[in-house]
Design a protein around this nucleic acid. Structure first.
Length: 446
RNA sequence: GGAGAGGUGGCUGAGUGGCUUAAAGCAACGGUUUGCUAAACCGUCGUGCGGGAAAUAACCUGCACCGGGGGUUCGAAUCCCCCCCUCUCCGCCA
């Protein structure tokens, strides 16, 4: 959500942002509606002011003990006079009431349209974001790690996992349809291992571990900016008017909704492991093979809520990016960091760095992490504020990044650590989480 | 799921139709006094949206807000209806 006052002053900025982000929104309509809304509000306020002035007089007219009544009688008015005056005022108030009623109906209609329009306004991207139409125009900032070459013909993760008996796509689909899977034995263990490694690293870096709801009210989805644009990506539990989250970012960021924090409580750094549910609507036919694009996965997510200060936000943005990189470095995976272009940014994102990890079966880098900063965008929607040093209320800034998402991260792990005999070497950093095991071999072998 | 109790400012807590512009206390902030701390005293003390004052801070002013939404009334924190949430007990249950 943006500040309407700001939009009013600089509608061109929003128009430009919408064009660059390729997000449809009608700034002109919003401005027109805003003007009308304020005019109606002014009329309503004036009518109510009049009503508030006349109303209390009624109490005096009907109370012979009031000072006003006594004075009126002393001035020679009869009770009949006063009664007539009361009737006249009552009539006047009734008229005002009727006018208020029609104005209120207008105000409600225009207010709803205003709210809907406001929810679609995009946050302008930072100047350092490259301009581009889609992910093909993202800019690679740097490469880390060495992309290996194999002395043998490498297998993809599905072939490897199936032969090792640790990935079972077929039965996953049998139970739950396309884009589902089952991890088994060391596959499940590997999945848990990466999640635990990620959590431990974040906790050691001062993030508070949280266990949070993954089924939330729709207002929370609106507040974090996933609704209304993107609502078709969510699984809804309509009977209960709840939505399954696609990331723990949602409950972590919304944690302090409608609250006022003290400045010295900031920054709030939290981390949560959660299951993530995504419908992948509109992705039909895309990445249909393997564990890359699936309906359900587990993810460790980091969230920072900080002061309303762009420099501070940028500093934390780099910090959460570095946290994710530390995990990939611990796992020994080659990756690159990408500056996501305007056309690939979400509605509320100011800037986004994706980390793409090398995946041999794709013969390219595939997105495994996504670090975003929002400035006030989410905090405004969530009404998440703090009191600054001058005792003034300000909206917080929010940021988030993946720490690790599995099983997608198992793709590079399995494929990069595979051996010629079809076994997979377990990255040293994960061995403590797998009972010290060093290799995954097919069942039946030792 | 059943029964009951309750939701008032940062907190505690009065207030059952019109001198309530929501009392009072605590906390907080500013000040005075004081070897220091504490205490005492004085003052300030909500949020949002408008309007005005040279200004989109802290001055003036209008409106709204007593869990949310409707309704009755000239007038609702107060009366009626629906919903949400919290607590207690019962039932079911990982």
């Amino acid at each position: 959500m943006l500040d309407i006052k700001w939009i009013r002053e600089k509608p061109d900025l929003i128009r430009e942002a919408a064009a660059l982000k390729r997000i449809p929104c009608d700034v002109d309509r919003l401005c027109a509606v805003d003007e009308r809304r304020r005019a109606i509000q002014k009329e309503l306020d004036d009518l109510r002011a009049e009503s508030n002035e006349l109303g209390p007089q009624m109490a005096l007219f009907s109370n012979p003990k009031s000072d006003w009544y006594k004075r009126a009688v002393a001035d020679g008015r009869t009770p009949e006079d006063i009664q007539a005056l009361a009737a006249q005022t009552r009539q006047k108030l009734s008229d005002i009431k009727a006018r208020i009623k029609t104005r209120e109906e207008e105000a409600r209609a225009i207010g709803e349209e205003f709210d809907q329009l406001m929810l679609t306004m995009p946050q302008p991207a930072a100047p350092e974001v490259p301009i581009g139409k889609d992910d093909s125009e993202n800019v690679v900032l740097r490469h880390e790690g060495q992309v290996p070459s194999f002395a043998f013909e490498p297998k993809d993760h599905v072939a490897l996992g199936t032969e090792l008996g640790i990935i079972d796509v077929e039965r996953g689909v049998k139970l739950a349809g396309a884009r589902n899977y089952i991890l088994r034995g060391d596959g499940a263990m590997l999945h848990y291992a990466v999640l635990r490694l990620a959590q431990d690293l974040m906790i050691s870096r001062g993030f508070t571990p949280m266990v949070v709801p993954v089924l939330v009210r729709e207002s929370v989805m609106y507040g974090t900016g996933y609704f209304p644009i993107g609502r078709d990506q969510a699984y809804l539990c309509e009977r209960d008017e709840m939505s399954l989250v696609g990331t723990a970012e949602v409950p972590l960021t919304a944690y302090y909704t409608d609250e006022v924090l003290e400045e010295d409580q900031l920054p709030v750094k939290s981390v949560a492991l959660s299951t993530c549910f995504r419908r992948e609507a509109g992705a039909a036919g895309k990445d249909t093979y393997g564990l890359y694009r699936i309906h359900l996965f587990d993810k460790v997510e980091q969230v920072v809520v900080c002061r309303n200060d762009e420099e501070e936000s940028i500093r934390f943005h780099h910090e959460i990016l570095a946290n994710a990189e530390a995990v990939l470095q611990a796992l020994g995976l080659p990756y690159r960091v990408v500056n996501v272009c305007t056309g690939d940014l979400g509605q509320g994102q100011v800037q986004k760095f994706d980390i793409e990890t090398w995946m041999p079966s794709r013969n390219s880098y595939g997105e495994t992490h996504s670090a975003s900063r929002f400035y006030e965008f989410q905090a405004r929607r969530l009404n998440l504020r703090y009191r600054d040093k001058d005792r003034k209320l300000r909206f917080c800034h929010t940021l988030n990044n993946t720490v690790i998402a599995s099983p997608r991260i198992l793709i590079p792990i399995l494929e990069l650590y595979q051996n010629e005999d079809g076994s997979v070497t377990i990255p040293p950093a994960l061995r403590p989480y797998m009972g010290g095991k060093e290799r995954i071999v097919a069942r039946g072998q030792s």
